[in-house]
Structure formats: C-alpha cells, structure tokens
C-alpha cells in the first residue's frame, strides 16, 4: 500500500512538472517571436518576387505597374488601384465593418486573385509561401499589433428559397426601401442619382457596381453577395447593412441581386 502511494505521488509529481514546463514553453514569448520572425523573412522574399511590382516596396500600392484601366461592356472605364497595405483596410473580409480581415480572408485573395481587377491568382506559388507572404503583409500596418481582433465572424447559412421568384419579388421591395438605387440605380446599372459624386476613403473617384456588367469581384455566389451586405466594403461607399436589415431580408436582397446579375430568373 505504501509502495503504491509513493508511486502515485511520483507519477502525479511528474505530471505536474510536465504540465508546468509545457505551459511555460508555449507561453514563452521569445520562442514564438522567433518562429514568427522566420515566416516574415520568407514572406518578404516572396513579396519581393511577386507582389512588389504592383504593391510597391513600402506596401503602399505605389508599385511600378501603377494604375490599371479596364473598360466594361457599357463603355465605362474602371480605374483600379493596387491595395495600400499601410492603411490596413480591406474590402473582402468575413469580419464586420471596421474589423481587420482574418488570415483566411487574405489567403483566399492571394490564392484566387480578384477577377475583373488587376490582382492575378497565385495558385502556382506554394501554400507555405503564400502563408508567409501574408505574415509579411501584416507588418505593413501597425493595426495588426495595436488593435484587438474582432470576435464575430459573419456566419453564412443560405436558405433553400434564395433565388426563387417570391424571394426575388420581396428582394426588389427591399432594394427599393433600403435605397440601394440611390447609388446602384433602379436597374442596378450603377447610375443612381448619387453615383457620379462618389469618392472612396482616399479621395479617388469610385463608381457603384454595375450589376449588369458581369461577375462581382468577390464572386457572384449567393453566399458572397450575402457577406458583402453584412461586412460592407470598408474604404468604399458601400456600408454595412448588418444593423439595418433582418437576416431574412438580407437573403431576399441576395435573390434580387442575383437577378440583376442575370444569375436567377
């Protein structure tokens, strides 16, 4: 019995010691920082290979390529600026307005690119390199160190009736009531009464999206459209409707938007 008790004490002692040392090691800031710094170094090399030519040495979007112009089917010329990482504001996030994007958001953009813009896809770069370059990009703005991260991530569960004619009709009413047409126009052509004076947060002229022109930059799936209503597109004139619309109404609006895009009847 004594023997057994001694053995138990020993085991428990070893257990506590192991637990303590593990905890100490995992919270040892120095080690973590060293590991993080390694990734940033790799990321910097990747950045200078693929990204610097558009996004610039300082990450401010003023690379050698400069501004890109695209003309869509209606003849309207889009002016596209490479993103300025030093400000730390991103359009396509899964976090609410005012929040930083998640690492997954950044990885998705780097991997898939943004269609109908100047950002190409980088699927040919290894996943490890892509993750490393994201760590480097995060060093351009102090926001990632200074700010508390956002807890909420927009949850997206598409109901079955999205895209049905009843939902489209309801969505049309929501579109009218929410005054989307003030910027996007009654037919979604981006020619609403407020559309010609719009400027983004940095003083550059910006046009509301013309839904009849083709796919959305974020992707035209119902989930992508829904997320945009929730998060707003920070840095542009597109606000968040999270606090103005019930979830059900947001999905009706998605149906109507799909119709304007020509993806639903």
């Amino acid at each position: 019995m004594e023997e057994f008790r001694k053995k138990c004490k020993g085991v428990i002692f070893i257990f506590c010691f192991t637990l303590l040392s593990l905890v100490l090691m995992s919270t040892f800031q120095g080690a973590e920082k060293a590991y993080g710094a390694d990734k940033v170094e790799t990321g910097k090399k990747v950045y200078q290979k693929y990204c610097i030519i558009c996004h610039g040495n300082k990450g401010d979007g003023k690379g050698l390529v400069g501004i890109i112009h695209r003309v869509e089917k209606s003849g309207l010329v889009w002016t596209l600026f490479p993103r300025d990482f030093t400000v730390g504001v991103f359009k396509f996030r899964s976090t609410p307005t005012g929040c930083l994007p998640t690492d997954e958001d950044l990885l998705r953009i780097v991997s898939n690119g943004i269609p109908r813009s100047g950002m190409p896809s980088h699927e040919d770069v290894s996943l490890e390199d892509r993750k490393a370059v994201i760590e480097y990009i995060k060093t351009f703005s102090p926001r990632w160190q200074e700010e508390d991260p956002c807890e909420e991530i927009v949850s997206v569960k598409k109901p079955k009736w999205v895209g049905s004619p009843e939902s489209i009709a309801k969505g049309k009413k929501v579109y009218k009531k929410m005054k989307c047409w003030e910027c996007h126009g009654y037919e979604g052509k981006g020619d609403g009464p407020k559309s010609d004076k719009l400027k983004d947060d940095w003083g550059d002229k910006i046009i509301p999206f013309d839904f009849t022109s083709g796919a959305l930059k974020r992707g035209s799936s119902p989930e992508n459209v829904y997320i945009t209503f929730n998060t707003g597109l920070d840095g542009t004139g597109m606000p968040s409707y999270e606090d103005s619309l019930k979830e059900e109404d947001r999905w009706h609006l998605v149906s109507y938007t799909l119709k304007l895009l020509g993806l639903a009847e």
């Binding site: 890109i68 112009h69 695209r70 003309v71 869509e72 089917k73 109908r116 022109s213 083709g214």
Partner: peptide
C-alpha cells in the same frame, strides 16, 4: 493615351 483591358 491609356491602355485598357477590354471586357468585350
């Protein structure tokens, strides 16, 4: 004066 990517 400018080069454009044309969607048509």
């Amino acid at each position: 004066k400018i080069s454009v990517y044309d969607e048509i």
